[in-house]
């Protein structure tokens, strides 16, 4: 194992199109640690991952992020990768006509590593998490299922061997077997290679496989609480009600409208009436 690493986030603030999303994040992840960042929708979880990796479209309005003392926010995304940061994306991008191996070889070459090691490393890592060999030849993420995309992200993570990995909703779209395979691979990297993990997730599902050392609750752009694994269990029981201004009623309502028979107007009243008053609750 190489010397321990540290991702130190201090007072990080960021805005999108003038709207402040991150209101000052403080967080430190060290080699071998797994930190979970949990939070309700719209709390700024994905923004945090994007800002750390340098996705265009975000304005840093304060604070800093250091990886082993290197100011990440001053670097281009590929330089952040070279500095040892990796982001497993929530929605991995399809890149038509570009093979996984070509990308990783280009990355190795840019880092001054021996690119000829890439194909065998990719094959070994794919086998390790049950990612079908046949899929390796496909263009990046093109015609892959949600679960296959996440396995693909995990293969890349394992081949690139970063110091710190951010997992943005790694569990979304993953079936139980894939989740276990990916989580175990990452867990083993924390132990064998001292990988530090910042796992961003809405549900505690991931954390039954990838055991967190620290759990943070992110809401309204701030870390509201930090605790041990028991905090995730508590959230499982109570939900995020304590961390949002009000129950997010909009979502269940949308789901009910999808079933036309549940709509009161469906029982006989003309649909036109339901929309006569734009402020009337159609479900009342």
């Amino acid at each position: 194992m190489s010397a321990p690493s540290e991702l130190r986030i201090e007072g990080l603030r960021a805005a999108v199109k003038g709207r402040q999303i991150l209101q000052g994040i403080d967080l430190t992840v060290r080699s071998g640690e797994v930190h979970a960042v949990m939070g309700p929708n719209g709390s700024g979880k994905s923004t945090l991952s994007h800002v750390l990796m340098g996705k265009p479209g975000y304005e840093i309005t304060g604070g800093r992020a250091l990886l082993d003392g290197v100011d990440l926010l001053a670097l281009a995304p590929w330089e952040r990768s070279r500095a040892g940061l990796f982001l497993a994306m929530q929605y991995p991008i399809e890149v038509p006509g570009v093979a996984l191996v070509d990308v990783l070889e280009a990355s190795f070459a840019a880092m001054g590593h021996d690119a000829s090691l890439v194909p065998s490393s990719v094959r070994a890592e794919a086998e390790r998490i049950g990612f079908d060999d046949k899929l390796l030849g496909r263009a990046l993420n093109v015609d892959l299922s949600g679960g296959e995309k996440k396995r693909n992200e995990t293969v890349q993570l394992a081949v690139l061997r970063p110091r710190i990995a951010i997992l943005d909703e790694l569990d979304s779209g993953l079936d139980v077997d894939a989740l276990r395979a990916c989580a175990r691979r990452i867990e083993s990297m924390t132990q064998a290679d001292g990988l530090g993990v910042l796992a961003i997730t809405h549900y505690s599902r991931l954390l039954t496989e990838l055991k967190p050392d620290v759990v943070h609750i992110l809401a309204k752009g701030r870390i509201q609480r930090t605790g041990g694994p028991e905090l995730a269990e508590e959230l499982e029981r109570t939900g995020y009600a304590d961390y949002v201004d009000e129950e997010p009623a909009a979502e269940p309502a949308k789901a009910r409208v999808l079933d036309p028979s549940a709509h009161p107007a469906a029982s006989g009243a003309a649909f036109g009436d339901a929309f006569a008053d734009p402020f009337a609750d159609p479900l009342a």
């Binding site: 281009a76 995304p77 590929w78 991008i93 399809e94 280009a106 840019a110 880092m111 690139l160």
Partner: peptide, 14 residues
């Protein structure tokens, strides 16, 4: 832009 960012995030220069 998203494709470019994806590749860059893997350490590939722009």
């Amino acid at each position: 832009d998203d494709q470019r960012f994806y590749l860059e995030s893997r350490g590939v220069p722009p």
